[in-house]
Amino acid sequence: MIHAKNVSYTYPDGNKALADVCIDISEGSTVAVVGANGAGKSTLLALLVGIFPAKIGEIEMAGIPVKKDKLEDIRRKVGFVFQNPDDQLFMASVYDDIAFGPRNFGCSANEIKEMTEHAIETMKIEHLKNRAPQKLSGGEKRNVAIAAVLAMNPEVLLFDEPSSFLDPKSRRNFIHAMAELGHTKLIATHDLDLVLDLCERVIILKKGEVYADGKPMELFRDQELMEAAGLEIPLSLQNRT
């Protein structure tokens, strides 16, 4: 479902963010991308959805190559949930924000209504639909941002730091909501406990390269590997060992 082959990316200021990254993620799986600050997590997500053009290497999402002329198709199939929901929610009401995607894709009025209400139902936010996004709490905004992406009926979901801005209870609710979604999910995060709860696989990036790839429980227990990658063993595992 997500294929990246020998992808490299250098920012215009010369900062090399990714080097020869190869990723293969199958349909329906939930995979995390972790790494220290500046490891290239956010850049990787931006390349996968075509925000930055991948000049070196090949990327294919849901069977479509990520190229300039295919971006509209890519964005129908791939939903991107931003780190800060305030960047994503810009309409005057929650309902209109969730309907923004379907309206842009030229769906009929009935389809727009159906897709929007289905997304609202999936994220259990019926009580918020007439509220103004700026008045919601961090957890509510996150749920609305996810619903806004789900309304486009994507096959792949990309998350950039989804647990930031969330209090412990909202974080727990988010994990429950994610576990119920059957989409292919790629989550870039620093929250390693969230990875243990949600993901069957983790890719560790270090200085723009894939440093390790495997099961979270196995990689996170390896203290030497974690330290070399600039990470720490998650708290929950520290307590168990």
Binding site: V49, I51, E72, R75, R76, G79, F80, F82, N84, D87, Q88, F90, Y95, D96, A99, F100, G101, R103, N104, F105, A109, A148, V149, M152
Partner: peptide, 23 residues
């Protein structure tokens, strides 16, 4: 910076310069 991020978020949800308002 904020404007840039908002624009990218809009593009990711199919925005192509045409704003569709609720009837």
């Amino acid at each position: 910076e904020r404007a840039e991020k908002v624009y990218v978020a809009m593009k990711c949800r199919g925005f192509n310069g045409e704003y569709h308002f609720a009837s």
